[in-house]
Design a protein around this nucleic acid. Sequence first.
DNA 1: ATAGTGACTTTTGTTTTGCAAGTCGCCGCA
DNA 2: TGCGGCGACTTGCAAAACAAAAGTCACTAT
Lengths: 137, 137
Amino acid sequence: MYPQFRSPCPVASALDLVGDKWSLIVLRTIFAGRHRYNELADITEKISTNILADRLARLEEYGLIAKRAYQHKPERFEYHLTQRGADFLPVLQQLAIWAREHIPNRWSLPGWFAEGTARQFYPEPGTDGAALNPRAG
Amino acid sequence: MYPQFRSPCPVASALDLVGDKWSLIVLRTIFAGRHRYNELADITEKISTNILADRLARLEEYGLIAKRAYQHKPERFEYHLTQRGADFLPVLQQLAIWAREHIPNRWSLPGWFAEGTARQFYPEPGTDGAALNPRAG
DNA sequence: ATAGTGACTTTTGTTTTGCAAGTCGCCGCA
DNA sequence: TGCGGCGACTTGCAAAACAAAAGTCACTAT
């Protein structure tokens, strides 16, 4: 389930899971209420589809997201946060706060993101869990 | 000073600066009170020296750290956090909290890290600013 | 039968990372 | 006055990660 870690340092270990160019962008997009492959592929940052497929597989392997079919014949999937994935929200919030403070001209933070808690993004089995979670990029 | 950003998204932009395998490890090590090249190279994660030199140059270019000579003949340098770099502490703290919660057998967080504030790590001109900051890896 | 959609996979470069070794200025010692 | 060593990088080259574009495959709609 987990890869080989560089060390037992918590910071280093978290980065061994999501410390690449795209994983946190994918997570951010799911937080924004986009759950299907094409919604995740169609973002302003232009991720290529092979990378997206690979990151989704890894995030699923590490237990940050879960894949579930929303129809059969043909099978189609949605990717949702697990509790473990939803708990990543504070990291993204702090990253965004830092960027807003130190890089000019960034987007401002939507309320559902700035004020959200992990719990709100962790869907109960069967519900969408995205009341606070409008489809925004 | 800054690179081309993938988008104006704060999360994506922060990752354009430090979203690689090593930048945050270097930052973490400086937070831990290690300021010289060989102290930064000699960590349990085994960073190679070309990568370390490149990351230090980039973090300096982006204004997260500052290089200053601590002696001449021969010139020797120390790398210190700037305010902008010290303000990254909450991101590292949240990453570490997440990892401690979701990955088994990680190191526990030293008090100076878990309870520290950015201000404590931003050295006044001329001082070391590392009272809370024992040399730990 | 033909075109289209959703969700990937494959192919083929390019870029980044990693390891080992080398360099360069200076200092201490014989 | 030559030699070894240290600190701080730099270089060369192989391996891994990333990216763009095209292809595949199971359907469904016309």
